[in-house]
Nucleic acid binder design. Structure first.
Lengths: 245, 245
DNA sequence: GCAAAAGTGTTGTCCTTACACCCATGC
DNA sequence: GCATGGGTGTAAGGACAACACTTTTGC
């Protein structure tokens, strides 16, 4: 309907010089912060770095850095990860911005939070700048800046996401047992699941490939090892229209 | 484990002056853009404004503005809405940032997109700055900037969201018929739903209050009118641990 | 043989889907 | 009386939750 509205121009003249307009805008320091979750020894961990600010002396913070002047935020997040940890080929997802005016002691800094979930063993940390370390998520109390809040928000996102997408498979060895898979889900969701129902669920989804191999060197009956059928998953992407709140 | 790590300080001296650090950061123009969906005449609409840039002469754009220097992004989004349309008491949700370097013809501008879904009749548009108009979502083709992409991303978010939360009820009159509710869902999800199953679904959720009133002046058998039981919904917030991809 | 975890099946319940007929009203 | 949409029920299938015993291995 509104496509046919006449152009009304008397209201104001159009802005000819977009560059002049933009140059009149206030400018803000922009950063990105990466919340990298990892899974190891049946615990959900997160990668933190020691704050280099005197104001947060001794506290841990997320991996973050300022966004360069012609850089996309997503690219900045990948760069931060690469520079600080050497990590590459990781999928980052934006969660949200944090822009409380006093969130940074040095002045106004707006940050966009990104998160990912990776296999700790598949990604060797190089360049341990400023003491990058994995921390058990459950033991983290205080952090610098508003990073504890950012972490909490990203953790909630992760929990929601893993129920909708098979994120988990990237986190396990190429061949994994169902117990390992279940441990992963239990660690992330922070709940216990019924072993039988869990197995049924995953078998019925039919995304597991039986490798015919078994665990070795375990002090109990060895479990079968499976691979994830990524191809099949891609094809069967859920299209669902239920209403479910 | 890492809580007990000793502080290693020889790596570098801590930064004493956080303000100096921040002042060294490059700065970026920051805007917010609001994607306001509305529902009227069984159609999903979106509130757009005529671009005031010569470069996008005649094209429609989202409601946006620059973020003030000490303003939270969310607050800026609410302000934009208030200033441009008079709309208040609306819930906005952040979707994501858009930061392609050349997305604005006047130079680097990073934007954060927010969306909402409102009842067009409950919110009178005041101050029709620069021709703010409702547009039928399905007829929108080209827009200024990268706003078509932003709109698409926000629409997808809306579709996902309405399947998880009873957003819809704010969009209808205080008392509504089930047909109105179903029209809303069909418009947003862009599908047809079975009337009987739809009714069953909503009745079984038990969030509807029977007003004992009926539609009037309809050219067919009048439907019963219901209210939404917001209180009951709050209490029964879904807590769910299934895995469902 | 014992400890530890793997592996397995059934049942009841609930949710979803598909589907067809009568009812109340305006005209 | 007819057109329009309102209102209703059932049956089948699928998903989920709860639950206990046997098997295999390392030691």
């Amino acid at each position: 309907m509104n496509r046919s509205l006449p152009l009304i121009e008397e209201k104001g003249t159009l802005i000819q010089d977009a560059a002049e307009l933009v140059s009149s805008y206030p400018r803000t320091a922009l950063t990105v912060d990466c919340v990298i979750f990892g899974f190891e020894e049946n615990e959900l961990k997160v990668l933190l770095i020691r704050s280099d600010l005197q104001a947060y002396h001794g506290l841990w913070t997320l991996l973050g850095d300022v966004v360069h002047s012609n850089e996309e935020l997503g690219d900045a997040a990948y760069r931060v990860l690469r520079e600080r940890t050497g990590l590459k080929n990781i999928f980052l997802e934006e969660v949200q911005t944090f822009s409380t005016p006093d969130r940074h002691p040095g002045g106004r800094v707006v940050t966009a939070a990104y998160y990912s979930l990776i296999n700790i063993r598949h990604h060797q940390l190089r360049r341990l700048d400023n003491e990058v370390h994995w921390h058990n998520l459950k033991t983290i109390q205080q952090m610098g800046f508003d990073h504890k809040m950012i972490l909490d928000v990203c953790y909630q996102r992760l929990q929601r996401r893993i129920q909708e997408h098979p994120l988990g498979f990237n986190l396990l060895p190429d061949k994994f047992s169902l117990r390992e898979l279940q441990n992963l889900y239990e660690a992330i969701l922070d709940i216990k699941l019924d072993r039988r129902n869990f197995r049924k669920k995953f078998f019925s989804m039919d995304f597991l490939i039986d490798t015919e191999e078994y665990e070795v060197d375990v002090p109990h009956r060895p479990g079968k090892l499976y691979k994830f059928n990524f191809e099949k998953y891609q094809k069967n992407q859920k299209k669902w229209f239920g209403i479910d709140f």
